[in-house]
């Protein structure tokens, strides 16, 4: 369960990125967070992974109030939340295996265990046999799959996908969306941040629309309304 209570974020001198946002997200839900550019979607993501601190209000994730989270607790939080971005954030000089292993190394997982986990995750994202390739040898869709695999290796309860299809063509967008739905079917809460109307309309999931830092619509099985 993710609970946002009266959440606000101000940036000096006078930017109000979020204004009193209230939101309840149930476990295993699939949420589409939509809105125009600069309306506060990414700020919301940053607050949920404690990259930014809220100016007002509370953020509770899985019963854990992370509003005033201590610095040393942030890594624990981030291992429970997988994050993918539009620009994939892959290391060009590392292979697919090494990119995913990078996430496991920080938790002190042994190489033997990595060799067990990584092929399983690669199978889930449909990249079997490509573990020795470098990002430049992969298509955009495949690179985003690697990023998803990296986000999933910690078996997070929540997956935050911030514009994951922003750099992809229609076919790759469709495949990534199918993958996100599949991940959701496995029991992971997925929060998809997007302004892609077609994507939102095609999956028929809960749609939360943000405009000027406020939630202006919350539809159970919604459509892109802006």
């Amino acid at each position: 369960m993710i609970i946002l209570k009266d959440l606000s974020k101000f940036y000096p001198p006078d930017v109000h990125a979020l204004k009193g946002v209230n939101l309840h997200i149930k476990p295993k839900e699939f949420i589409c967070l939509v809105g125009k550019s600069g309306t506060g979607k990414t700020t919301l993501v940053k607050l949920m992974i404690a990259e930014e601190k809220a100016s007002k209000g509370r953020i509770i994730i899985g019963g854990w109030d992370i509003t005033d989270i201590r610095n040393r607790e942030i890594p624990i939080l981030r291992r429970q939340i997988g994050v993918v971005f539009q620009d994939f954030k892959l290391l060009e000089k590392k292979t697919v295996f090494e990119n995913i292993a990078f996430a496991l190394q920080v938790s002190g997982i042994s190489l033997v265990r990595m060799k067990e986990i990584i092929p399983q995750v690669l199978k889930i994202v449909g990249l079997e046999g490509k573990q020795d390739r470098y990002p430049v040898q992969l298509s955009g869709g495949e690179q985003q799959r690697v990023a998803l695999a990296r986000a999933l290796v910690h078996r997070p309860k929540i997956l935050l996908a911030d514009e994951p299809t922003g750099n992809l063509d229609t076919q790759n967008t469709k495949e990534i969306m199918e993958l996100l739905l599949k991940i959701n079917d496995f029991g992971t809460t997925v929060i998809l941040v997007t302004h892609n109307q077609d994507v939102v309309n095609s999956i028929n999931k809960r749609v939360i629309t943000i405009d000027s830092g406020k939630i202006i619509s919350d539809q159970k099985k919604g459509k892109y309304i802006l």
């Binding site: 890594p75 990078f102 920080v106």
Partner: peptide
């Protein structure tokens, strides 16, 4: 900086 940002993203501790 790239590695550091990814380390932070995947939950590396400050000491790591």
């Amino acid at each position: 900086r790239e590695e550091i940002s990814i380390m932070k993203l995947v939950g590396a501790t400050n000491w790591y």
